[in-house]
Design a protein around this nucleic acid. Structure first.
Lengths: 109, 109, 109, 109
DNA sequence: TTTT
DNA sequence: TTTT
């Protein structure tokens, strides 16, 4: 447990159903996108909503739970940690992505 | 305040002195890189340390405080929110970056 | 902002409607009780639910929002800070209480 | 893990060495007091520091780590959960206490 | 005193 | 790509 060193908490809505992959060792991986919508009043008193999309990664038991209980549109709270990854895309360009590896989630009702 | 919807906490070491930019309206922006080092034991009982680098952005008073008090190597705790941004690099490739907009930091002694 | 030094986050159900008090200077205070229900499996595989009751205190704008939008039974997420207080009860016994001064809340649906 | 439902984070100084108790089953319990010092400017621009004392409880491996590495005066960051307990004191008065059961701690340097 |  |  290193939650003091690296911890993210989000509350938002899922933009997609979980994409689940199973590996040889039976271990599961689920991917999700979550949108956080934060609003504030600007100088003119207009309500502005800023949406951020975040990439979630779930492993093992959490992936299984996501597959069984979560779907597009659901509002969820998650706790996880930031992880950075890079890969080379189809055009040979090196890409960097930041993902949140989820430790725990709660579905809001 | 939307800390319930989008909140990140990190404890780590700064990889650089703050890069500070001042704007016309006297508003300041500081950029920092922070490394979080998490360790665990693998299957063979060996201690593995995983380092993640994160991009921090500080505005206004927080930028001023960072400029005055923080330098490369310092251990700091930060609280902020995840924000995604994109730009086109010098080769015309669209790039996506995830940054943490810092609300608050503590220097550890 | 001292959220790095002292921060509490709870998700639970309200055991009562907000108790609101107004002061001379028009400032409002609201009190709430919230139950957090955590479950786990014990040695025998039985599901155990442990309930903890927490005392919430809200001031000003947060008190007004609580008065307008929250009621007994609601599921809410809160962020606040721990504060300890003491008083002498009607029998002359000195009492210590721990309360959570709420900075922010979200009503779950 | 129920860190989404009930989570406390504190950064402060220990008011005492850990008080450690060992049980028959070899399980350890450690108790600690931690002071959080938050400062702000009042109406007159004076700096006010408010100190809160919190009761920490650590079990098992965390208790052992506390016993070995922590002492009075140390600055530590902790993550844990709120738990309420009651007992009858030597005068027959029923007492309620709020404690933080620590999941994880970091010693600051 | 809540909820599942 | 979500939601209010």
């Amino acid at each position: 447990m290193n939650t003091l060193k690296n911890s993210v908490r989000l509350v938002g809505n899922l933009g997609m159903d979980p994409e689940v992959k199973s590996f040889d060792n039976n271990r599961k991986l689920a991917r999700l996108s979550i949108a956080t919508n934060e609003s504030y009043k600007n100088d003119k008193g207009e309500k502005i909503t800023e949406t951020q999309w975040h990439h979630l990664v779930l492993w093992g038991a959490q992936a299984k739970l996501a597959e069984d209980y979560l779907k597009k549109g659901d509002e969820v709270a998650i706790e996880g940690k930031l992880a950075n990854r890079n890969y080379t895309d189809k055009d040979g360009v090196k890409r960097y992505v930041t993902e949140i590896v989820v430790n725990e989630f709660l579905k809001m009702r």
